[in-house]
Structures are given as C-alpha cells and as structure tokens.
Amino acid sequence: MAESCGKFLQRFLPVLGCVLLINLVNHIPLASAEGQCIWYGVCTNKTDFKQRYCPYNGPAKPIDEGGRTILEKYCPDIAAGGLTCCNADQLRILEKNIANAGMLLRCPTCMENFLKHICGMTCAPDQSNFLKPVKIEPYPGGAESRQIITEIDYHLGATYMNTTYTSCSQVQMPSTNQVVMDIMCGSYGSTFCTPQRWFDFMGDAEVPLVPFQINYKSGDEPSDGFIPYNPETHPCNVGSKGQPGCSCFDCAASCPAPPTPPPPPRPFSIHGAIRLQMSSTQIMS
C-alpha cells in the first residue's frame, strides 16, 4: 500500500506543482502589464523656483478639468484617453516649460516630436512602465509632512530620441546666427551634440530650468523590468495631419533637389587632333 501511495505521489505532485505555478504567475502584478502613476500633484510651494511633484503610486485619475485645455492643446493623445497622472498645477508648469523651448516652434514637426516625451513623462497614465523614482526626499519648505521626487530614471526609446533629435538639429536661430542645438546642448554646442547628449543636458538638474534630475536611459528593448516610452515621430519634412513640413531653412530634407548637372563636354580624341593638324597644314600649303 505504501509503495502504491509513493508512486501516486511521484506522478501527481509534478502536475500539482505546475498548476500552482501557473496560477501564481497569473496573479503576480507586473508593472509592464498595466502601468500606473509615479506622481500626482505639486508638493512644493508656488514661490519655489523649482517645482517638484508628489509621489503617488496608484492608478491614473480622470483629467483635472482645471487643466483640460492645456492637456488637449499640447498632449492630445493622452487627453483622448481620459486618464492622467498629472493635475492642473502640473499642467500649468508643463505649459510654462514648453514656452522655454519656444525656439523650436520654427519647425512645427520638431516641436510636436519634442513635446511627446514631455507629455509622456508628466501625464501618461502608465508612467511606471518607463519611469522610476530614484530619489524621494522630505520637502523642507512646509510645516506639514510631505515628500517630493527629486530624481527619476526615464526609459526612453532610442528610436524616439534619434528621430526627434534629427528633426530638430537644423532649426535655426536667425537672431544669433546659430542653430538651436548651440543653446540646447550645453557645452557641446551643435558641433559635438548627439541625441544622448541633448537629452542628458535637458535632464541635468544643475541647469536652472530643469526642476529635478532626469536620467535618460536610451534603448528600444525592455530593460530592468521597464518598457521604453517610444511614441511615434515624423521627419522634419513631413507635417502631421496634412500640414506641411518644416521650411528648407530649418530642414534640409524640405529643400528641392538640385537640378541635374549637364553632361561634361566631349573631349577631343587623339585621332581628331591629328586630323585637325593635317587640315591646317593643307590650308597653309
């Protein structure tokens, strides 16, 4: 009897183990399956120069009606979903930050591409798929106990970073006879700027206009449990929704192709030169 029970258990336990494992996997919450917020609201005083957000680890919330107009203007794709991880105060800060990048408006396609990563970082309903709070600190400016996020990792698609940079790299600043990357890429200037260097500069908290440290992690494949944010972009010579692309002045791809050069003149052959000499001799004689 004991021997029969032993054989039964040897056959049954592996099957039972597989069933339990499958059920366990199905009930483990995965960040990549259904992301949520990492922040919501502003936890610094309005008088602070750098505004920072409140940690919030929960589901996205319905659009704050006080900021709906801003969200629909700059982040229509997110607004269409009806849920966000940003309130009206954050959206007003977003609008102010966008104004600081107004030099990109000369090329609407560049600006549209650029905005997508700002919108995703600030308001996307599945932030936890690609954003990781690295530092959360107590806010020293208030009597009540509150915390602020002071550093994040942003897993951003390499394809997005490269195409956005390419669409913006030739945008001009006629008032200074420069391109925008001379200003927006820090000490590298336009000559030594690259997509990664551009984004790194925009995420450097040492820059006065950057509110907190943003570590841009470039890549198109999932890494460390995060799925890179990789929104659709357009080349600078292609406008969105039937609009024209950027001008030739700001986008070389928009310039007309140069005319085909004429064929070079046919050179004289040695035979032709000899015949010409013979003809001249005959004329002189």
Rank of each mutant, 00 (worst) to 15 (best):
T163R: 14
T281G: 01
T194N: 00
A252Q: 14
T233V: 08
A273T: 13
A60F: 01
T281Q: 07
S190Y: 00
H27S: 09
A101S: 00
K61N: 05
N26S: 07
K73T: 13
T194P: 15
P195I: 15
V179S: 14
A33R: 14
S128K: 03
Y154E: 10
V210C: 01
T233Q: 08
D250W: 15
I152N: 00
H271T: 11
G67K: 03
Q243K: 12
L71K: 09
S167T: 04
Y216D: 01
D77C: 01
P222T: 08
T159Q: 12
S32H: 09
A88S: 10
Y229V: 08
E206A: 15
C5W: 15
W198H: 09
C54M: 12
S223F: 15
C246D: 06
P235N: 02
C18F: 11
V171R: 05
I98Y: 10
Q277N: 07
A33Y: 13
R146G: 09
F114Q: 04
R146P: 03
I274Y: 14
A158Q: 13
A273S: 11
R11V: 06
R68F: 04
N45G: 12
P265Q: 09
S279E: 01
C43N: 12
G41R: 06
G81I: 09
L104K: 04
N45F: 09
E206M: 14
C18E: 04
K50H: 10
L276K: 15
P244C: 03
W39H: 15
F49A: 12
A33M: 06
D224R: 07
K7C: 04
K73L: 14
G157Q: 01
S223R: 10
F192W: 08
P222I: 09
A257I: 04
D126C: 02
S169Y: 10
G66A: 08
V180A: 06
L71A: 03
L276T: 13
N129L: 06
M103A: 10
R146A: 11
C193Y: 01
P265D: 03
E206C: 07
M173G: 00
L20I: 14
F268W: 09
F249A: 09
P231N: 06
L156R: 12
E3R: 10
L276W: 08
I214G: 00
D89P: 00
Q243F: 07
R52T: 11
Y165V: 01
G242R: 07
S128A: 06
I98A: 03
C85S: 10
P59F: 06
N57C: 05
I136S: 05
I93V: 11
R266Q: 14
R92N: 14
P62L: 10
N237S: 12
S280H: 10
E112V: 08
G35W: 00
K116Y: 02
I183C: 07
A33N: 02
Q10W: 15
Y40T: 03
T176N: 07
S175A: 09
F12C: 06
R275N: 07
K73I: 03
M202I: 14
M161T: 03
